[in-house]
């Protein structure tokens, strides 16, 4: 980490912990990237503060993704789903992460669509593939998978399957799915 990056890291870290200390659970610097683990209810206030603040200009939501920690130590300890918000400071050109752990049953977190238009499709994708409920999303529908697909394919308990294609020699057999 260069000196500049470590300064920016401290700025961001201080900004969040000073005002929103009650929401911050912990932080880490894995491979030089700052990750702040926050409570789900702290997401909206923290992001609103980022958007209003002009000294850091964290105005860019670069990405949003989910990690399924099913049957791992990390998942058992914090919660099965880890929602990762990838934010970028326009002024300092610095990237950091907000992470929210959600439980196995009814994973639910507030939607960021009121703050960032870009969150719309990202959240739809996370809903489609992981089944995370983004509360307040205007149009939380499937986006990538077919309408008749049940379940959330990127969850770790969704098996990889192979559907046997139909040819002339097996066209009368019922469809077979190999798991």
């Amino acid at each position: 980490m260069t000196t500049n990056a470590s300064q920016h890291r401290d700025l961001i870290h201080r900004f969040v912990t000073e005002t929103f200390g009650q929401y911050v659970l912990s932080h880490d610097d894995f491979r030089g990237d700052l990750s702040l683990y926050i409570k789900a209810e702290g997401l909206i206030p923290i992001c609103e503060a980022f958007l209003e603040d002009d000294s850091l200009q964290v105005h860019f939501l670069a990405d949003l993704t989910v990690v399924d920690w099913l049957d791992t130590e990390r998942g058992d300890e914090h919660g099965r789903f880890e929602v990762v918000y990838n934010l970028w400071s326009m002024r300092h050109n610095y990237r950091f992460f907000l992470k929210v752990f959600l439980p196995d049953t009814e994973p639910r977190v507030a939607s960021l669509t009121d703050l960032w238009q870009g969150a719309n499709w990202m959240e739809r994708e996370a809903y489609d593939l992981f089944g995370i409920d983004f509360v307040g999303h205007p149009n939380l529908e499937k986006i990538l998978t077919p309408d008749d697909l049940d379940g959330f394919p990127l969850r770790k308990d969704f098996p990889l399957t192979y559907e046997v294609p139909h040819f002339t020699w097996n066209k009368d057999q019922p469809p077979e799915v190999i798991r």
């Binding site: 880490d28 894995f30 791992t72 990390r74 880890e82 990838n86």
Partner: peptide, 8 residues
């Protein structure tokens, strides 16, 4: 190792 990295 356990952990997430992002490279853009």
């Amino acid at each position: 190792p356990v952990g997430g990295v992002y490279q853009g």
